[in-house]
Design a protein around this nucleic acid. Sequence first.
DNA 1: GTTATTGCAAACAATTTGCACCCAC
DNA 2: GTGGGTGCAAATTGTTTGCAATAAC
Lengths: 144, 144
Amino acid sequence: MKNDSLSQKNTTRPTHHLPHLTRNQQAVLAVLRQQSDALSAQELYGVLREQQAIGLATVYRALETLKLQGLVQSRSGTNGEALHSPIEQDRHYLTCLHCGQSFLLDHCPVHDLAVQVHLSVPFKIYYHTLEFFGLCEPCTHQRS
Amino acid sequence: MKNDSLSQKNTTRPTHHLPHLTRNQQAVLAVLRQQSDALSAQELYGVLREQQAIGLATVYRALETLKLQGLVQSRSGTNGEALHSPIEQDRHYLTCLHCGQSFLLDHCPVHDLAVQVHLSVPFKIYYHTLEFFGLCEPCTHQRS
DNA sequence: GTTATTGCAAACAATTTGCACCCAC
DNA sequence: GTGGGTGCAAATTGTTTGCAATAAC
């Protein structure tokens, strides 16, 4: 989804980004923050509609907005769907290629290294994703 | 880019079973290896069918097998489709949240760090994914 | 009043699956 | 001959989009 709106100009100047989240967007963010684990959009939708009336499309659109604001990050689960979590959780996982189970890393290696990212281009980093793949203990043995 | 074959990679190759790849699986892997960039399954399919007769489903199935073997890794592109690349390419990207463009990192930070991943569980790591998200230079200015 | 957001449902697109055929061993 | 791999097409499913109603400012 490329953005070719170069000709479009905003009359209002957003010199400092104030998120300005709508109620629904805030609700989405709130649910993500109170969850201990990453949620798929559909799961999120399920939780939200217990609290209020909301449409699935709105959830997706809210997630898109939140990602653009750098407030939410996503990783893709083994089954193809995207899993979303608030970025302040610098969480990373080890995922087993065999059984698909994920194990939470108790420490983020990248966080340490003061982000010495050598860039060929200027870039403002909001957050990062990091995931390790391999085999968990049980699966190393009973390999099909 | 330089070849640092002296330093040991933190990524472990699968030591169990021989790959035993079928012709098609090998073809898929070969194409991925000769590509400079990650490919979606559909792109892969397009390239492959120029060389030989193959079905789309086979491409997907081959990718699944190769991932299970620890030979191929996938990241999800901004538009939702999965992008696949051979794991020996320790490539990582910066992706702009605004325009969706990806920039190749010229160096893997995780690769350096002797990867003392403190695990709460025993786990055999094959490879990792790492991706940074934020705003590219142009998009930092024309922020919506 | 003007503009952005929402909800619904239809539309999309990537991926998966059922099943018959075929190849490798 | 048996079992797995393959291809095709249909079926699934996560996600996006068009548009009218609605809420925000």
